[in-house]
């Protein structure tokens, strides 16, 4: 299954699981669903709950 991208609805940042978020300790290949609960948007700082799947 191809990993899904998720988009921050407060700023438009797109989380791409293939890239992860290495600056904040998230390894490439980490699906959005497995990000820690306290992970926040690296662009604007809002929480995971403001992300929606890119359709």
């Amino acid at each position: 299954m191809e990993m899904e991208k998720w988009e921050c609805t407060a700023c438009g940042y797109v989380y791409d699981p293939e890239e992860g978020d290495p600056d904040h300790g998230i390894a490439p290949g980490t699906p959005f669903e497995d990000l820690p609960e306290d992970w926040v948007c690296p662009q604007c700082g809002v929480g995971k709950e403001f992300f929606q799947k890119v359709s």
Binding site: W6, E33, E37, K48, E49, K53
Partner: peptide
């Protein structure tokens, strides 16, 4: 818990 919320959002949308 927030476990499962992202999955749920997907099932609903």
């Amino acid at each position: 818990t927030r476990k499962g919320v992202d999955g749920l959002n997907r099932l609903i949308s």
